[in-house]
């Protein structure tokens, strides 16, 4: 017998014996995994960010397969992933897949709002807020414009415009809320689409004082409150507030606001839910 043949045979024999052993072991130690969960995990973004409230994508997939988690529970994947998950679970489509998008509730950039001084410290709103209460800006409620929210955004969905205000790129925003937590002045909120009417001011100062420091702040004139047909807007502590649950996007408040504080922003279309039988 030639050496080649011997080596081929011995190698093959050893390999087959080990393979047989492994086959036996894999049967014996088989771990049952839910195939549905596996499928769902496939379509998830796989970032393991935990924004859904579960410990990673695998945990969410398992919960969704058990019906414990909503199909649209992944805020990062948004509508696309919700659709796919719904498909896997045999649920037709999803109602209330309201994508949450960050909204910046301040319009007072460099052109609109007064500055007492120029900030030359670190480019971090939290530093400015915690050291001098952000007093370089005349309005003590408005955006400091140092871009802490932009730096906090893990999805590159925000940028600072030339006017010194953060802008949310709606298509990229996943509603993770990192910017909301980063903002020391609580200017950013998460609003569910398709809510398009936003009162972009957080100032609790008297109307007269607001006028003194900003050309687009809420002066609590109550015109929007009177105009609203569904009582979605209430003025309290010198600030108009909107109840997103009541608002019907009629945009009448946008038209009457003398300061142009109220804005309408087109939302993205939303899926409707229907459970398959």
């Amino acid at each position: 017998m030639s050496t080649t043949l011997v080596s081929l045979i011995s190698m093959g024999m050893v390999g087959s014996v080990l393979a047989a052993g492994l086959v036996y072991a894999s049967k014996k130690f088989a771990v049952e995994t839910d195939p549905t969960a596996d499928e769902i995990e496939e379509v998830l973004p796989g970032a393991n960010c935990g924004a859904c409230g579960y410990a990673g994508c695998r945990a969410f997939a398992e919960a969704a397969a058990d019906g414990k988690a909503p199909v649209d529970g992944c805020p990062v994947g948004g509508v696309t992933v919700a659709k796919l998950v719904a498909q896997i679970l045999g649920v037709e489509a999803v109602e209330g897949t309201h994508r949450k998008v960050a909204q910046v509730l301040c319009k007072g950039g460099r052109a609109e709002a007064k500055l007492h001084a120029e900030w030359i410290g670190p480019r971090d709103c939290r530093v400015a807020q915690n050291t001098q209460n952000g007093s370089f800006k005349a309005c003590s409620y408005g955006c400091l414009g140092l871009g802490t929210c932009v730096a906090a955004c893990p999805f590159d969905a925000m940028y600072m415009d030339e006017n010194g205000l953060p802008v949310v790129i709606e298509e990229k925003c996943t509603g993770c809320g990192m910017c909301v937590r980063a903002c020391p002045r609580d200017i950013i909120v998460l609003a569910e689409e398709p809510q398009g009417v936003h009162i972009r001011c957080r100032s609790l100062a008297l109307g007269k004082d607001v006028r003194g420091v900003c050309s687009v702040g809420c002066i609590a004139c109550r015109r929007c409150e009177k105009e609203c047909p569904v009582n979605a807007i209430t003025v309290e502590d010198n600030l108009a507030r909107i109840d997103y649950d009541k608002c019907i996007n009629c945009r009448r408040c946008v038209a009457v606001c003398p300061m142009n504080t109220i804005e309408y922003q087109e939302g993205k279309p939303v899926l409707k839910k229907k459970r398959a039988s």
């Binding site: 011997v6 080596s7 011995s10 190698m11 050893v14 390999g15 393979a19 052993g21 492994l22 072991a25």
Partner: peptide, 24 residues
């Protein structure tokens, strides 16, 4: 069988199989 040259591949084969076993 006088196959010293097969030592490394065959040992690796055994190790790989054992690791698979431990993994399972």
């Amino acid at each position: 069988f006088n196959l010293p040259f097969l030592q490394t591949p065959i040992f690796i084969l055994v190790i790989a199989a054992m690791v698979q076993l431990v993994e399972m």
